[in-house]
Amino acid sequence: MLDSERHIEHDRLATPLRAYLEKVLHTRVKVRAWGGADGLPVFLARGYDFAELVIERIACLVMSFHGDAEPRPSNIEKHVRQVRNVYEGPVAFASSSMSSTFRDRLIEAGVPFIVPGNQLYFPELAIDLREHFISPAPPKRDQMAPATQAVFFHYLLNPEDWPMPVSELAGHLGYSAMTVGRAFDELAGFSLGRIQRSGRVKLLRFRSDPKTLIDSAKTLLTTPVLREHRVRWRRDPEPLQLGGLSALGELSMIDANELRCYAVSQHEAKRLKGDRTCEEVDVYVEAEARLEVWRYDPRLLSRDRIVDPLSLYAQFWNDPDERVSGAAYDMLENLEW
């Protein structure tokens, strides 16, 4: 094949691939020509078009047959295996259409594949099969996922910054663009907002003001606390975020007459234990503090030494102790929206 013809075929493969993957994965996808075809057997180099994808800094190769009669799934499996001997990274087969039988045989053979606009199966990238034309919608969650709640609270605390593109918000919160994109979809699924697209930019526009939204969504909230430990300090820790009843006591009239409580991310909890800043104790009288390990990093939404009030509200609004739940309600009422 002439270079000019191969360039045309590459563009025909690259354009729909990029558009489809960016829509599904909610992140930018780079597609570039692959120069390694010369190292393949002649029948592969001439029979397939190749495009290299870069998704979230992960490179992978896609190969698409351009002859008249597409090979059988068993042959495609052999061809993909041969390409893997040359390319150091995941390899997938791409086609403009695919029957369910053909698809099932590729899955049985362990061959990743992409059908732009319809199907995606790429286990090596932790991407599951999506069939838009026949698959039922995923079951609706009863509560927000931790990342979804973090995105929701970011809007409630910073409405003047919204709507915010997926990529920009991902940078603020430390999540991948794919995670933030899924959070947008989940919030839209809860009817708290609607998805809007401007070219490749995906936005979420919330349907109401922050005060109204938090009131209507409180049953969807989940406590940010994954687990709690009583600890004794072996040396003075770096400044930590006040959490739990200690934080609620700072933001309401409740008397937090107990051990000082701090909130940390899962990563920070491992660090504190790993560098022996603290040690867990079983006996209450030996404890010097409570350490709450959060599902998301409490520093993402906090503006000072205390965790953000919305995460506190999610933790305590339905507390069985009416003094605590009442203090959480009072704290929310006193917020300046």
Rank of each mutant, 00 (worst) to 15 (best):
D3H: 08
A314L: 00
D321P: 00
V201P: 12
R205M: 03
E268M: 09
A247L: 06
R323V: 06
V166K: 08
E160Q: 08
A37D: 14
E238D: 04
S191F: 04
E56K: 04
W317Y: 15
L106M: 01
D68K: 05
V293L: 01
K273C: 10
I306Y: 10
R305W: 11
D11C: 13
V24N: 10
L248Y: 02
F153R: 00
E5A: 14
S99Q: 02
S325N: 09
Y155G: 00
F113C: 07
R299G: 04
W162M: 06
R197M: 11
L248N: 04
P116V: 07
A126D: 14
P90G: 08
R276S: 03
P112L: 01
D209G: 06
R32P: 07
D321H: 14
V111E: 01
Q149W: 05
D321M: 11
G199Y: 15
R46K: 11
E336L: 12
E292D: 10
I127W: 15
A314W: 00
N85P: 05
P165E: 04
N85M: 11
I127T: 11
V264Y: 00
V180Y: 02
E168M: 12
L17H: 10
S96L: 08
S4T: 15
L157P: 04
L226R: 12
G171V: 12
G47L: 03
P123Y: 12
E279I: 06
E9C: 13
L192G: 02
L259H: 10
L2R: 11
P16W: 03
E88F: 07
I214A: 03
A217W: 04
L242V: 10
R103N: 12
R32T: 10
L291Y: 01
A19E: 14
I127Q: 03
E322S: 11
A145R: 08
R28V: 09
D275Q: 09
F184R: 01
S198D: 15
S216T: 08
S100R: 15
N318T: 05
D304Q: 06
L40K: 10
M253F: 14
E322T: 15
L291V: 02
E228L: 05
R84K: 14
P165M: 09
G274M: 12
F190T: 07
P320K: 06
R28C: 06
L335M: 13
R197P: 04
T222D: 04
Y175G: 04
R103L: 12
D209S: 09
E131T: 11
G181E: 03
N85R: 14
V166T: 15
T277S: 08
G244P: 01
P71H: 13
G67H: 10
S252C: 07
D104R: 13
C278W: 13
D104P: 03
R205P: 01
L204P: 04
G249L: 01
L192M: 02
Y87A: 02
E108Y: 01
L203F: 13
R295S: 04
L245T: 01
V180F: 07
